[in-house]
Design a binder for these strands. Sequence first.
DNA 1: CTGCATCCGCCCGGATACTG
DNA 2: CAGTATCCGGGCGGATGCAG
Lengths: 146, 146
Amino acid sequence: MSQGHTDVTDQAETVDPACPVVEVLDRVAGKWAVGILVAAAKGPVRFTELERQVEGVSRRMLTLNLRKLEREGLLVRTVHPTVPPRVEYECTPMALELYETLLSLVSWAERHAVDIAHAHLVYDTEHAAPAESPERASRARVPATR
Amino acid sequence: MSQGHTDVTDQAETVDPACPVVEVLDRVAGKWAVGILVAAAKGPVRFTELERQVEGVSRRMLTLNLRKLEREGLLVRTVHPTVPPRVEYECTPMALELYETLLSLVSWAERHAVDIAHAHLVYDTEHAAPAESPERASRARVPATR
DNA sequence: CTGCATCCGCCCGGATACTG
DNA sequence: CAGTATCCGGGCGGATGCAG
């Protein structure tokens, strides 16, 4: 049991001395983690609720990410001892702060959405293009000859 | 050639209607992308230079991420037509803005470093613990009975 | 020096079935 | 309802070799 696939729930995380940003991103790296955070940011959410809202996530990955986020101290899991069982996940203050920070990323993305789209277009064009003008067929910028 | 493994260079990216954050993160998701950005933030960097600074990245992944970042319009590739060839990668203004934003993430990480570490400790303890006190061995918080 | 192509192992993550 | 366990395919990414 101590082997097999580790999934997102990597207990032994690889440290990256380069910079702490990587660490943060690695935590939220999960394709679903952010979605979960967003869904939970508005208030306590039930398991099935998440399964619907995040939508696209499998039960497995949902649970996995939930556990991970809980471990990170970003979510609090509350079990209501009722029948049928009722479990709610709630963002911690820390998570809400992170959420606010993520918003600045969104801001960045929105501000440069067109730039990025344009960049894609240019890159793809200059790249997929087999050959047009014999001169200047290379995709890279060349510095002023000096 | 038109098939096989797609790697990081996924041209056809999956759209996530949930929120734009995911998009941004997916762009920088590459374990190495951030490292590259950081290295390039200080100024134009050569290929081999990156290979050393990021350190841990294979030539393959480096190239792949470089291409991706270039496509995103975050890096500018400049080829100096000399011999031996000299290629430099430089952050675009847009990338530098992103870099600044990422710094706020670092700030968050630093502010809550201890909280996170503590959360890990608690979670791991309450979880790895096979059994100690017969009562209250469950890891979840239970809400006040009401 | 810079970069692409191929091979290939390994992990990620989806599907399914079963438990409390 | 809320998970856990198992199977298993796909692609992610390292290693290597070759080209400009």
